[in-house]
């Protein structure tokens, strides 16, 4: 875990707020918070539901997680995130929930500036084990990669 005095430092507002919420409570409560967030992960919209093949599989998660990233052609290049993970994988759903709540709807540039170590700002390493944190690090890495690709495709005049 990074021993930052300000767990939210350098994170976009919504993600920073979550990092601070997690850091303010005990390890046990942190797991409960993660469980609550896992329950709030939105269902897939119709265009993805039943079309997991059109999404990216995040193999680094212990349970399969599917991810889709959209970048709008508005001036902000607004990022939309979609996740799918089974109910029997609440930790993976919780990680996805944090990223959804913290990053969905942000401009592409803001998402790209999220530090790569953001997953370690939630004080979860000890509670869920460092090994399991790899899934969240990978999710963020893949989100940023897709945002970059899609933003560049839009700049080149294609469709994202």
């Amino acid at each position: 875990m990074t021993a930052t005095a300000e767990p939210g430092a350098g994170l976009p507002a919504a993600l920073a707020e979550l990092a601070e919420d997690f850091s303010a409570v005990t390890e046990r409560e942190r797991l409960q918070l993660l469980l609550e967030i896992s329950r709030e992960l939105p269902e897939l919209p119709e265009r993805y539901a039943g079309h997991l093949e059109s999404m990216e599989r995040v193999d680094e998660c212990q349970s399969p997680l599917f991810l889709a990233v959209e970048v709008g052609d508005d001036p902000d290049r607004t990022v939309r995130l979609f996740f799918d993970a089974p109910p029997e994988a609440p930790t993976t759903r919780g990680f996805a929930g944090i990223l959804h709540e913290g990053l969905d709807g942000l401009p592409a540039e803001d998402v790209l500036q999220v530090p790569d170590d953001a997953a370690y700002r939630f004080g979860l390493s000890a509670a869920v084990s460092p090994l399991r944190m790899r899934g969240m690090v990978a999710m963020l890495g893949r989100i940023k990669r897709q945002v970059r690709l899609r933003r560049d495709a839009l700049a080149a005049g294609g469709t994202a």
């Binding site: 896992s38 212990q62 029997e88 994988a89 609440p90 000890a126 084990s129």
Partner: peptide, 24 residues
């Protein structure tokens, strides 16, 4: 495998034993 799964519901009377945080 999932450290939160027990908390979503478990067999009555069962206790959680986490392979990583309890045994390693």
């Amino acid at each position: 495998e999932d450290v939160l799964l027990y908390d979503t519901g478990h067999i009555p009377g069962a206790l959680k034993l986490d392979w990583h945080t309890d045994l390693n």
